[in-house]
Design a protein around this nucleic acid. Structure first.
Lengths: 203, 203, 203, 203
DNA sequence: TCATAAACGAGACGGTACGTCTCGTCTTGTG
DNA sequence: CACAAGACGAGACGTACCGTCTCGTTTATGA
């Protein structure tokens, strides 16, 4: 992705890289994809336009990398011993992420470009896969405790848990209340208990 | 929304309007929001650029109105006598809409601009409200038949039914299989039967 | 020049014609040729744009006719019995014409388009010829009184009399003082007395 | 006048500047102010439209600078020892300038915009002042030789010498013959000898 | 420590699209 | 059925941003 940055990983190079990626997120948050210009990003990062283009081929690549970097934060997975409470906690965490100005902006950008062959569109699967692997233990523990049917797919459960939250943000543009997060958790749990997520998933 | 079109509703004016709005959807489908230019829309509609600008203030307004017009198609609501089957049908209908090239493109555009104060961002609530009012009878009938708890919110049910489908399209970029639609329907039904959608919604 | 106006010389037709031509001069005075739009002329005349186009083929033709009409005012020729005084009076009259906002604007417009094959460019010779015929008697009387050499060309004299005034307006953009008018008159008189304007002109 | 050109006075920048200014004069000569478009100028200069706009804010400024640059050519002042012959030479030189296609076009453009507050209108005084300083020595020498009255204003003389030539070009649109140039010279000389241009000018 | 190669700052440029303006033609619905 | 009201095609205007390209200047690394 970056040609130059890896040859001289120390000092100015790395500093510049971080500043630019941070500036992208800020611009995205403040003005959105359409209004984001490479020049304004460069200016906010205290760097010249040419420097940005040197390292990232185009706006698409630049934003893609910034989004990927921004999504690398790990979520602290809950482990209360009760799957109902675990799921509620999870939903609340996701809600907080999505309601932050930054989270909302980046999520909207990703959704708007989910189909793009290059750049931002490529980020989604990677990003989502990472998130899923984190949740698996939570589900496995619940199964072991007999709180969920054996064979319950952590993947499916996680998606159905978060889907209503994304739906509110992206589709209906309704406020993401805590009650809505709790409802999503409850709905996902009911479905899981009913065995909807057992066995061969919908692939 | 349009200043001129309503004064002379007949003949050329209306014809032009329809051609342009259709062209917008086609361009959106083929090239996406970022690559959509007013000039290309005009050309596809067989109309001059100025004519487009005369009636729609800017690109944003233009696309917003095209999306609104495109979403006015009514869905044929199922009524099989069995809520499980009704929901499955509904999920399949939505799946077909979202998997059509046009539906996917317009949905992505809407999601990417759900926050915009003007233009496309304004379309979402209107559009979604219209959809919801169509579903209410289906849920009411199920309640009357005793297949769902009294007080079940059609609104909440519908959102949880469709959320996983939008999630696949916008967030994980996974293929929208029929199995995934059926699973979404089953999950929503399980949650509804568990009373998750009863009483005061998550507002 | 005007097809319709002469068929129905009275009533609304003539009134409209006059209003439009007057509006042209006003717009020319206020905003100049470049900023003059047919639409603004029509609006100022209280007439629809189409009406203007119906009667005058284009902007060029329209302005040309307005200028011609505006120049039809006859100058009160001086006759003091002294050619020196007559010429000074004449120079002062021309100065007043050229320093009026309207006169300056129309003159500049004419000068700027003196070369145009159609429209405004055609007006100049006609207009100037009319002016010259008015001066001839003044010169003839001076010759008869023995104040000027026999054979002095009224044409050449008049041109050399007014040339410095136009020069100030169009070329050096200096203020047209009365002193400058008097100087122009004196210079022309000196040249005339020296016989510079006698015999075959410079054709 | 130009923001960028002076920082990097060598190489491409200067080359581009010269090409554009030359193209302006050519377009002005061929098509006149009204038909001159920035795009056609750019194309003729082998440069992109944006490059022109980058350096010159608008059409007015662009043409103004081109005219100023074009007028910087120095006239070879005559010095025959006889003021009559000097003036005749001068008039002929001016005549040649004004009868060239380029000279006529630029002069008409300047005259048509002599009043404009910004751009082309600003060029005139500068341009004319430069011309006058060149003539002063010619007049001074004639005074020294006793061929003209002491105190004769070179400024006034020059203006009255050239005024009839401009008058023919701009006002009467008559052909500028050599005879007319000679007549203008003779008239100016007669007036000068009569002392019309002595002492305090017409301000 | 210091030479040298990498990275950067500065900015002109070609190019695409934007949204605005005016011109002169053409259509339409009303009086 | 004529004509005003006004939509339209055409095209220039001036702006913004994209991504490329010099040409000097700074800065990090390794000899």
């Amino acid at each position: 992705m970056n040609q130059a940055g890896e040859i001289r990983p120390g000092g100015r190079t790395a500093r510049t890289r971080a500043a630019v990626l941070a500036a992208v997120i800020e611009e995205l948050t403040d003005h959105g994809w359409d209004q984001l210009s490479v020049e304004s990003v460069a200016q906010r990062a205290g760097v010249h336009k040419t420097t940005v283009y040197r390292r990232w081929h185009d706006k698409n690549t630049l934003v893609a990398e910034a989004l990927k970097a921004a999504a690398e934060s790990r979520i602290q997975m809950p482990d209360t011993g009760d799957i109902a409470q675990d799921l509620r906690e999870l939903a609340r965490i996701v809600r907080v992420l999505l309601t932050s100005r930054e989270g909302a902006a980046t999520t909207r950008t990703l959704a708007g470009h989910s189909h793009d062959a290059a750049g931002v569109g490529q980020v989604l699967p990677v990003l989502w896969a990472a998130r899923l692997t984190q949740v698996e233990p939570v589900v496995e523990r619940a199964v072991a405790r007999g709180q969920l049917p054996a064979g319950t797919s952590a993947n499916d459960l996680m998606k159905h848990l978060t889907a209503p939250l994304f739906h509110r943000l992206l589709v209906t543009a309704e406020p993401l209340t805590q009650a809505s997060a709790d409802q999503a958790a409850a709905a996902a749990l009911a479905a899981a208990r009913a065995g909807i997520f057992v066995a061969a998933g919908p692939g």
